[in-house]
């Protein structure tokens, strides 16, 4: 792949958004650019950012693919982790259980889509209910307190390494690199692109379209579980209703990051930049004592205007050619 799999105009747009947001806040108070504040922003963004990375692959695969269940997978995995910790088993085992559960849940989504041929939006709507339901069943609807867990576990969400938050440096960064690698440098990434662009042509070129799409759900599942682990460690609780906004927010991030909701054009780098935009907007608002809910609105506006801007660019380009 030449470049980083993102449209240059979109890359520019995101950087401008980022610059404007940061610059705007800096005008109000230069302190926001202090290292401590920047890392807080990052902590804020890690969990939904990881969800969005998984969502990127699903949307990229095309055929209207979206995963509405990522938040639910995060919650259920987190709950399983919590149960393991409550039993005083090694926390590593809990994390492993959570990640495996995420993979299984993703596989269930993928198989229902690829084998039963149910549109993924319906599949994941159904499993979203089911996974949240199971999370509630397992916990009896009560949050599991994890504050007494081994410090080495809590460090995942609360510790810091060479001055940077643990989950940013040792989780998000490696995951981002792995995803970018997967997307840009592997046969899977290439096959996914081609599948999302024209699945009939991809199938006739010998690409395993169904297997690839199925895999995207598994990846989304594992990453969602990882996000669940991080948030459990950060908050010191496992909540059966965790990440409820993550289902839709992760889609919004991916689209903001330049993905075509109809497939073939998503990019990991774009999703990361979009996550940063959202993190900055979010943090800046609360830093300046605005209610953080403005974040939601600003994301909505950015989402819509960015797609409209893209439409305008394409429309112009079509007129020219």
């Amino acid at each position: 792949m030449g470049g980083i799999g993102i449209d240059r105009s979109r890359l520019l747009l995101l950087i401008v958004f980022l610059g404007v947001a940061l610059g705007g806040y800096a005008l109000i108070d230069l302190q926001i650019l202090a290292a401590g504040n920047l890392t807080s922003m990052a902590v804020f963004a890690v969990e939904v950012g990881i969800l969005a990375l998984g969502q990127t692959f699903v949307i990229c695969g095309g055929d209207g693919g979206v995963d509405l269940s990522v938040g639910a997978i995060a919650a259920l995995s987190q709950v399983l982790l919590g149960l393991v910790l409550k039993d005083r088993l090694p926390w590593e085992l809990g994390v492993l259980a959570a990640l495996c559960a995420g993979a299984v849940m993703g596989l269930a989504n993928g198989l229902a889509y690829a084998v039963l041929r149910i549109p993924s939006i319906i599949v994941t709507l159904a499993t979203m209910f089911a996974f949240y339901g199971l999370a509630l069943v397992f916990t009896g609807g009560i949050n599991i307190d994890l504050t007494a867990s081994p410090p080495s576990f809590l460090a995942i969400g609360q510790g810091s390494v060479i001055g940077l938050p643990f989950q940013v440096l040792l989780i998000y960064l490696p995951v981002f690199l792995a995803c970018a690698y997967l997307q840009l440098f592997t046969a899977f990434g290439r096959g996914l692109y081609l599948t999302g662009t024209n699945d009939l042509a991809a199938r006739l070129a010998g690409i395993g379209v169904n297997r690839i799409r199925c895999l995207t759900f598994v990846i989304a599942g594992v990453l969602a579980a990882l996000a669940g682990v991080v948030s459990a460690a950060r908050l010191g609780t496992a909540r059966p209703d965790a990440s409820e906004t993550g289902n839709l927010l992760s889609i919004a991030i991916v689209v903001l990051g330049g993905a075509d909701i109809f497939g073939g054009d998503g990019s990991v780098v774009g999703s990361v930049l979009a996550t940063m935009v959202i993190a900055v907007v979010d943090y800046g608002l609360s830093y300046n004592n605005f209610n953080p809910i403005y974040q939601a609105g600003v994301i909505g506006v950015i989402l819509i205007t960015s797609v409209m801007a893209q439409n305008l660019v394409r429309f112009r380009a079509r007129q020219r050619s």
Binding site: I299, G300, I304
Partner: peptide, 10 residues
């Protein structure tokens, strides 16, 4: 879906 995802937030 994108448009109403946006207005959902707004």
């Amino acid at each position: 879906i994108v448009a109403t995802l946006g207005t959902l937030s707004i």
